[in-house]
Design a protein around this nucleic acid. Structure first.
Lengths: 264, 264
DNA sequence: CACCTGTGTTTACGACGTAAATCGGCGGGC
DNA sequence: GCCCGCCGATTTACGTCGTAAACACAGGTG
């Protein structure tokens, strides 16, 4: 039922194979009892996905798990660290993604492509969580938000260096790549948020923006159909391809500083 | 005193002409009395810049203004709208920036350059506020976070169309440009946040990340000097230049779909 | 049986956002 | 001169939040 529509966005949750439970959680058969850290974090993610970040309070999350708020503190030091755990858990989904590889066994471009789409899939699956990924301070200056874990940074750098990038070029690529990912995905999920939010305030205030005199912005009005088109998937692909092309140039330049300089 | 260092980042607050009071505020001579919306928003920005977003509460902001919390409610409907106002005020600084023009009178590349640096200056001047710019939902899907106001979107689109972009290309450019800006600047300010935060927890927990066994990440360790180098300004410039180059190609293609096709 | 230990609950406190009532001073009608 | 209404700020109060601390209550171990 609801088999993947070939025209659909390949990274969107609907476009793939069902909801894919965020975390395995619980041994399996146990119906309700037995809280543990994974269950808490999983429930938090689910809760945020469903109700938004602001709605998450310790008390409500407890209730959602059929437990008092204070019970959560046995598995999580506090709310802030709970959110850190949420970010970590969400990013950890990358490890379980069979389409994302830790090594560039099919070339660095394949590696970057798969990684980018893997992160995008996560962003689209958890649009309410993703801004948290971008906003929470990373542990170190060089662990940039979208990648988040040292393991991925290591994997990234190894892939690039092994593929013929100089160390400087690999680091530059890391920066270009992560800022590309962050910018695109953050914009995409925030856009998605807006599309939904009209339902948020179901009545009353008629959205204020609706009736600002658009007369002063004729171009915006004229191009609104184009502007509100959602071509995120194509845009993403194109920008990614462009970035890869740019990186390939960097790589070649570095390998052959003058011309036809053989391998070092 | 402290004249601009030529090697400094031209967009950094220190690299320019002093702190430049966020808002003019108050008629001038009045010492303390006379709250008004501008003063409230200005104080909020200053407060966030100094103490971080989380530290901002109505009570504390009131105290900062020498007033009780409830007094603020005469000028602002509530905390959320206060934050909206903060975002709006910060973006409004663009209008007062003499280096940023609303029209592409010196060509679209000049226009985009100036706009980009203007936004970057704002981001660097208010690193604690900027994530708010990125995170708060825009009024409409096509008002993307970094630009924020319809007036800028209009200006942007007009500049591009007037410079020979097709409408489709102008919209595509708008998207590419805004995601570029958002990604780069968000990453840059979040990075800046990390560099400072060690002071945040002055004692106790020795930062956890410091002592994670880096042995498993030899490449990260080896490249750490490169990774922790702060070349934001150069990176920004390069990525911006690349984007402009890419847009120029799009523009030419659109003008001459086949070859040498004269102006429409 | 007493006793620890690990898990969830109860109670309690201070801080938050904010609704509602209140107050103080000041300018305009009488 | 006096009063009065209004405007801007304060006081009070309520419900909710995060979370510290004390407690309750199992099940296993002697």
């Amino acid at each position: 039922m609801t088999e993947p529509d070939p025209t659909a966005d390949p990274d969107s949750p609907e476009g793939r194979g069902a909801v894919a439970g965020v975390l395995p959680a619980a041994p399996a058969g146990s119906g309700r009892a037995g809280l543990d850290r994974r269950r808490v974090l999983g429930a938090a993610i689910e809760f945020i996905d469903r109700n938004g970040l602001d709605a998450l309070t310790m008390r409500r999350l407890g209730a959602h798990l059929g437990v008092e708020a204070m019970a959560l503190y046995r598995y999580v030091p506090g709310r802030e660290q709970l959110l850190d755990g949420v970010v970590e858990s969400v990013i950890d989904e990358l490890y379980g993604d069979p389409d994302v590889h830790m090594a560039a066994s099919h070339g660095w471009q394949d590696y970057l492509q798969r990684l980018a789409h893997g992160v995008r899939r996560i962003a689209l699956a958890h649009p309410e969580v993703f801004p948290l990924v971008a906003t929470r301070p990373p542990a170190a200056p060089w662990v940039r938000p979208p990648l988040r874990s040292l393991r991925w940074v290591e994997s990234f750098l190894v892939a690039m260096v092994d593929s013929g990038f100089t160390e400087e070029a690999a680091v530059a690529a890391y920066r270009a790549y992560s800022s590309f990912l962050l910018g695109h995905l953050l914009l995409e999920v925030s856009q998605k948020g807006v599309k939904i939010s009209p339902e948020d305030h179901p009545d009353g205030v008629p959205d204020a923006a609706e009736d600002t005199d658009l007369g002063e912005y004729p171009t915006v009005v004229r191009l609104e159909p184009l502007l509100s088109l959602d071509e995120s998937a194509a845009e993403f692909e194109e920008a990614l391809e462009n970035l890869l092309g740019r990186l390939e140039l960097v790589r070649q330049e570095a390998r052959a500083p003058r011309r036809g300089d053989a391998r070092g």
